[in-house]
């Protein structure tokens, strides 16, 4: 949709704020501003991805074992939900640009549903992880018999495949090194889960913010509020929502998929 098309008579009408000279300037400011904001977001999440990659390189075996217990089906469902949400969002922006309130409302409603659906799936996933004591901290607990647990060929990590009680008795009977290793690997898995909860948690916070924005927008559009005559609010929300989606596109493979050769 070119700027030229948008300037057509009777097309999405726009109001000029006091600090701007003309409507193009205002629109460009909003768009550049949003992209600048997204750059800060990229730096924000970028640091987290960097931390994840560095620790992964430092502790590959423990991290892969921890990967293995994440529930891929939940992650995949959420990826599908978010990508469809992004499609609905694109359609919503298009409808708003064309000034079609009914369709805007429909597509925005669908996007909202996707966002809420994502949170529902995520909360079930979190619940099961809390139940398994995978939240880091004093209550963290590692069941080596978890289905799908990695039992691969990293010899240095071998001791970790022993059941916890066996390790304890081993400590009493023979060497002292086994529980130490066990303890360290326990910590490294906690490191993974710390990152997992922080990264998905911050992403979920972004989803919740998105729901609040889109919810407000939904009602403003429903009641034809003058502040949404302009298509810019929808356009900017769209940019934000696509960003939230893209973060998940990176989170999903890096947390759930990599490591399962």
């Amino acid at each position: 949709m070119s700027i030229f098309e948008l300037q057509r008579e009777g097309f999405a009408s726009q109001r000029l704020a006091h600090q701007f000279e003309e409507i193009n300037q205002q629109n460009e400011c909003y768009i550049v501003g949003m992209w600048t904001f997204l750059v800060t977001e990229i730096m924000f999440f970028g640091a987290l991805f960097l931390i994840l990659s560095l620790y992964r390189m430092a502790y590959p075996a423990s991290f892969e074992q921890a990967h293995a217990v994440l529930l891929v089906s939940f992650g995949l469902t959420n990826a599908v939900i978010l990508i469809s949400g992004s499609y609905f969002m694109t359609m919503c922006v298009r409808a708003k640009m064309l000034g079609d309130y009914r369709m805007t409302q429909l597509w925005l409603g669908l996007t909202l549903l996707c966002a809420c659906g994502f949170l529902v799936v995520k909360s079930f996933e979190y619940a099961s992880e809390f139940k398994d004591h995978h939240f880091p901290g004093p209550s963290f607990h590692w069941e080596t018999t978890t289905p799908g647990a990695y039992t691969g060929s990293y010899s240095s990590q071998f001791s970790t495949t022993m059941p916890a009680n066996a390790v304890n008795s081993a400590a009493v009977s023979s060497t002292y090194s086994a529980p130490v290793t066990q303890n360290l690997n326990m910590h490294k898995r906690q490191l993974f889960f710390s990152l997992y909860f922080i990264m998905t948690g911050l992403h979920a916070v972004h989803v919740i913010i998105g729901i609040l924005i889109m919810g407000t927008l939904f009602f403003l559009i429903r009641y034809r509020h003058p502040s949404v005559d302009d298509y810019m609010p929808v356009e900017l929300t769209g940019l934000y929502w696509h960003f939230v989606d893209i973060v998940w596109i990176f989170l999903f493979p890096l947390l759930y998929l990599i490591g399962k050769q």
Partner: peptide
Amino acid sequence: GTPVVAITLLLVTLQRMFGLCI
């Protein structure tokens, strides 16, 4: 630059609040 220090300090905060490990 600021987002990077913001997330870093947030991690320190979370680490202390929830016993996470970073």
